[in-house]
Amino acid sequence: MGIGSDMYRQQILDHYKNPRNYGELEDADIEHVGENPMCGDTIKMFVRLDDDEETIEYVSFVGDGCAISQASASMLSNELQGRSLEAVRGMDRDDIIDMLGVELSPMRIKCAVLAEKVAQDGIKIHDGELDVEETTTE
């Protein structure tokens, strides 16, 4: 079997079909949207912070697109609960590839990392480093 089938392990398909933490969050401290116009993948993430303003209490998302992008957002929303903003700022694409636990063909990596980029850009907006109007693309 080729690389593609490995991409669609049960875990990925499960998160795609039954996304975790799916839905909008009314009292989010951070919310941000990103898209890959070429594929039509869109992901909007919502983050609620603890009282310390530095620890993530809860993450939710809404989105549309391919299985890789949506499963990645679902899994990431689980991963980020309880993490510090500092830790999220320091994440890179290898963390996403490790999280997904599958081999991705080069063309599909940008689907996988969109959610991470949305989260990181959302934090940048929160930090005042990025214009709120800016839409994230990967």
Binding site: M1, G2, I3, G4, S5, M7, Y8, C39, G40, D41, G65, C66, A67, I68, S105, M107, R108, C111
Partner: peptide
């Protein structure tokens, strides 16, 4: 099934 997922599976 998104077209990109379909293409990946067809590639198998």
């Amino acid at each position: 099934v998104h077209a990109h997922d379909l293409s990946s599976i067809l590639n198998d």
